[in-house]
Design a protein around this nucleic acid. Sequence first.
DNA 1: CGCTGTCTTGAGTCGGATCAAGATTAGTGG
DNA 2: CCACTAATCTTGATCCGACTCAAGACAGCG
Lengths: 264, 264
Amino acid sequence: MLTLACRQPQFAGVRQTSATAAYNPLVARLTGLCVLTNDECAILEEVMRCAHEAVAGQMLYLEGQLSDSVCVLIDGMACRYQMLPSGRRQIIGYILPGDLCDLDFMLVGRPDHSICVMTHSKVVRIATPKLLGIIERHPSIDRALRLAASIDHAILRQWLLNIGQRHGVERLSHFLCEYILRMSLLGQTNEDGPVPFWFNQVALADTLGMSLAHVNRSLQKLRCAGLIRLAKRTLTILNGQGLADLAGFDPQYLGGTGRPAPAI
Amino acid sequence: MLTLACRQPQFAGVRQTSATAAYNPLVARLTGLCVLTNDECAILEEVMRCAHEAVAGQMLYLEGQLSDSVCVLIDGMACRYQMLPSGRRQIIGYILPGDLCDLDFMLVGRPDHSICVMTHSKVVRIATPKLLGIIERHPSIDRALRLAASIDHAILRQWLLNIGQRHGVERLSHFLCEYILRMSLLGQTNEDGPVPFWFNQVALADTLGMSLAHVNRSLQKLRCAGLIRLAKRTLTILNGQGLADLAGFDPQYLGGTGRPAPAI
DNA sequence: CGCTGTCTTGAGTCGGATCAAGATTAGTGG
DNA sequence: CCACTAATCTTGATCCGACTCAAGACAGCG
């Protein structure tokens, strides 16, 4: 069992569900990126009918192990990571509700990193051929999925910039800004209202390429500066502007499209 | 003018050109990833007919600036980077002959980072709608481009791992291993034969998230250890296995497909 | 209520940054 | 072909951010 998994209840946030159908985070995500017809939404919802539960620590993909399906997260949280023989681990991304576990796997078949559920989650596995068929028949879905993927890639680039060029405290701040904004875009929270925060400090350390102790001290600094409150797995932003300024956070990249940038 | 640009002559390596047609690095790259019909190759070659020259330092994309075309590098080298207001720069990838400048831009229209030519290069600009049309009509080309992109993403993940978790010397070694292998896959060189090496130490520093001085000292260590020779913009690997061991380099990710891994 | 995972804090050390100077090596124009 | 100029590389000295190690405090869970 990986220590980066947390045993935490799943999302409790209120859902902006359309009264008629069950709320579907993938459909919500994709319609936010690209106009989809009702038909197309229905197809996606059909595909997502059989979600199953995953417990904290459960693996969705194992590095190097063939896979014939694509996972979509419905609820909870997962993370991708790569390990070094020395035992060091780098987390290379977090998967939130509505996110896919990498379309690249679909083509390659064999992921180059592992994906692990961090909390009790709901996951849908879609068989690769099925998804490929849908993509082929529905260019809008194809486009929406590509856009979603392109945002994931932009996030990855930002992480590289973050780890490569920023010092501890700013690095942490940037990550927090990104997380908060991603969550608020999901409608899980408003921009600085309290957000569920499942990351333990080990996970943060492996995310930000810094030591556990240093993560802890950096968090203290943010607390002392009156920028955040973090306790009981809940994060509250006390001074969003201050945090963003400190991090040099530019939310543009999470928008992905040419549409107006999400407010911060 | 950016200091990371080098004024260097273009590739001089011998080309494995098919006797009949001019060697086309994009076609070579894509046929290596996916079976393409002669027709499809012809279409690609047609599209690539009008290459133009770019001088060192020339920008192919500017962060945030709308773009309606996709660049393919025919010869030379380019790099993507992002800058911080503080002036710090993170290079987030190198573009070698046969590589595309990010399909994601095509959908989004507005790149989130800049791309700059590092040496005198040859570049083809393909209008976005034209490329989209080709992709739509030729699923094999689509697939090949997606595979190529997925390798780029795998490289990005490896960089994150590299910067996040490895110390200076190993970090540098890993980068060198990757570079050598990418070049040898292009047929520009054999695996440890001398390779043209245009990176100046400033560029390496901005690539690896370390200071110029530290890059220099790390290079010295590799030289002293008898692993590499680097002079006159030419890199020779004296002990490839040693270098790979030091870096913990696993070439798998550059293969991209489920095909046998390239030899190292 | 004890156990385990997580967080916190301190002391000591080290890798790597910064600053600054000098040595080389290209590139340029005469 | 040479001399000048600008980039690039090299090296040393110093300092700081961040790591490691280690111990103790909490908190949540069974």
